[in-house]
């Protein structure tokens, strides 16, 4: 399966030494989407949760203080930029590094929340992210060893698929699942929807969704099932 079947016309490349980013309409669309959402997050303020109190007529406001707001906005912007980078990178190892950056920044966003339940979930998520870095980099290393290259533009030209390449991409998929905490682990992240300060929380979901879409493209390029 070549690049144009998945992503549409190859519009150009950005050469940075051995790391060559390539631009297709598919990648550019996700890149622009990630950047637009990051801009929206950068200019927005946190939400305030209003809780009705039982027994009185007062309402309780759950606010995010300024320090917490600042660090979460900063980490959310970094997460958005890393997501945008992961969308257009054309190098497997570069992609895994972007995913790791997303993972560590996500843990940071969650760990800045001042609620015990959220922190418990964040701790478990951190455990998964630590475990996931082994299959993530291990998968990239196995693909490098079995193909001799890391560039996706070269990987797409390799006519054969060995079982070791499939095993490497399986490990890579496990790593991406763990780092971004996608679908099977949404149970962990459901805790975060209820916290005040939601626009920054949403970048975690957006990044994991976009990264898994891009990861599917990368795995199709490596494994060529069609």
């Amino acid at each position: 399966m070549d690049l144009t079947t998945i992503g549409g016309q190859l519009l150009g490349t950005i050469p940075l030494g051995d790391i060559v980013l390539y631009l297709t309409p598919f990648n550019l669309f996700m890149f622009a989407g990630a950047l637009a959402f990051t801009t929206l997050i950068a200019i927005s303020r946190t939400e305030t949760q209003v809780e009705a109190e039982f027994g009185t007529l007062k309402d309780k406001e759950v606010k995010v203080d300024l320090q917490e707001f600042k660090i979460r906005r900063f980490l959310a912007i970094v997460c958005g930029l890393a997501t945008a980078g992961a969308m257009i990178t054309g190098d497997l190892f570069n992609f895994t590094l972007f995913v790791t950056l997303i993972g560590i920044v996500n843990i940071g966003i969650v760990s800045a929340v001042r609620q015990v339940d959220v922190l418990n979930a964040a701790f478990q998520y951190g455990l998964i992210a630590m475990m996931a870095s082994l299959p993530l980099f291990g998968g990239a290393a196995i693909i490098l060893a079995s193909t001799g290259t890391l560039s996706l533009l070269e990987l797409v030209k390799i006519p054969y698929v060995t079982s070791m390449m499939t095993f490497g991409s399986l490990l890579l998929l496990m790593g991406i699942i763990g780092e971004t905490g996608v679908a099977p682990f949404y149970a962990t992240k459901a805790e975060m929807f209820r916290t005040p300060g939601s626009p920054f929380i949403l970048i975690i979901h957006l990044s994991s969704l976009l990264v898994i879409v891009r990861a599917i493209e990368v795995l199709l390029i490596i494994n060529k099932p069609f």
Binding site: N120, Q124, I128, M131, I177, P184, F185, A187, T188, A190
Partner: peptide, 11 residues
Amino acid sequence: LANPKRIPRLF
């Protein structure tokens, strides 16, 4: 699976 403690073990 909704209990976050079980997720790392499953993973």
